[in-house]
């Protein structure tokens, strides 16, 4: 938000081009990366619902809101630090900072203020362990990923995925006050899912990360290596997903869902690993695009199955899991 004053000539519109563009409310909302926030809210909610004890619905609502705001604050701080490369890349050049709607200092202050607010509110509403986890998530995403490792390692997607994997752990901790094997497996599911999801995307989008000097696996190790990486991570992902079947999270719906989804996901990863660039370009990366779309469904259905199983247990349709 710039603090431009309005002059008489501005009213007349005669110097419109000289006026700094002031931010609208939606520009600040854009700083919170609302698309990423949807995943944060959903997985955080699943962690909260799947936890073995209960929480008052209003406190649960506040907890999810705090997790969402904390995730958004991390996004704002990410945009603050990465404003230079956001301005270079086409995909991010319309973000509020490179577009000139929000200046760097405001984005920084906005991010820090919301970080402090979300952590404090979560601590007061639920417990300080969950608040500490949220604070660590923000720290991890901003300092470890954005500031330190994003620009120096092609494994940046893997590291960034860890930050995105924390919400179900925080949701779980908000209810129970601790971390359990189940919440760690939910973390692992998102953590292992992120690399194949983004690398599939990187295969069929013309990335301009190299222009911004951000090392991406497709550029640093080549596309063939990226395809192999997708397969390896998908195998590891299947191991963690199926391991969830043997915990309290593994109700009948989840077990069936996990077996089917992981078989299909693995099939897709094998198909990707076997393809060469000529074949992919000829069909406009049909398999890669299909795999990417399916990866969204994959994560949604795994976590959705956890909620359905928990709901059925609540309705006592089958024994406690």
């Amino acid at each position: 938000m710039t603090d431009a004053s309005i002059t008489a000539s501005d009213f007349e519109g005669s110097h419109k081009s000289s006026i700094s563009v002031e931010a609208e409310f939606k520009d600040y909302f854009e700083l919170l990366k609302p698309r990423v926030m949807r995943l944060v809210v959903f997985t955080g909610l699943v962690g909260l619902v799947a936890a073995p004890s209960s929480i008052h619905p209003f406190v649960g609502f506040v907890a999810i809101l705090c997790i969402a705001i904390g995730g958004g604050a991390a996004g704002a701080l990410n945009m603050w630090w990465d404003a230079d490369i956001d301005a270079i890349m086409k995909r991010t050049s319309n973000r509020p900072i490179p577009a000139g709607k929000v200046n760097l200092q405001e984005a920084c202050g906005f991010g820090f203020a919301l970080s402090g607010f979300s952590v404090m509110m979560l601590g007061l509403a639920t417990n300080w362990f969950a608040a500490g986890l949220l604070a660590f998530t923000i720290f991890f995403y901003v300092v470890i990923y954005t500031i330190w490792l994003k620009r120096i390692t092609p494994q940046n997607i893997v590291i960034g995925g860890a930050a995105g994997a924390f919400p179900p752990v925080i949701g779980w901790a908000a209810v129970t006050g601790n971390v359990s094997f189940e919440s760690i497996l939910m973390f692992a599911l998102i953590f292992m899912w992120t690399p194949p999801h983004f690398w599939a995307l990187a295969l069929f989008t013309r990335s301009d990360y190299d222009n911004a000097s951000v090392p991406m696996l497709t550029v640093t190790h080549g596309r063939k290596s990226t395809r192999t990486h997708i397969l390896v991570y998908t195998i590891l992902l299947a191991v963690f997903a199926l391991a969830m079947c043997f915990t309290d999270l593994g109700g009948p719906i989840f077990i069936v869902t996990a077996i089917i989804l992981n078989a299909l996901f693995l099939k897709g990863a094998i198909a990707i690993s076997k393809r060469d660039e000529t074949k992919s370009e000829n069909d406009n990366f049909h398999v890669e695009r299909k795999f990417f779309k399916f990866s969204l469904l994959y994560l949604f259905m795994h976590f959705g199955a956890v909620v359905i199983d928990r709901g059925l247990v609540q309705l006592a349709l089958w024994g406690t899991s």
Binding site: E22, A23, E24, F25, K26
Partner: peptide, 12 residues
Amino acid sequence: HELHSRRLSRNV
């Protein structure tokens, strides 16, 4: 001016 609608959205 368009500036006012932007400020209004922020204030609201």
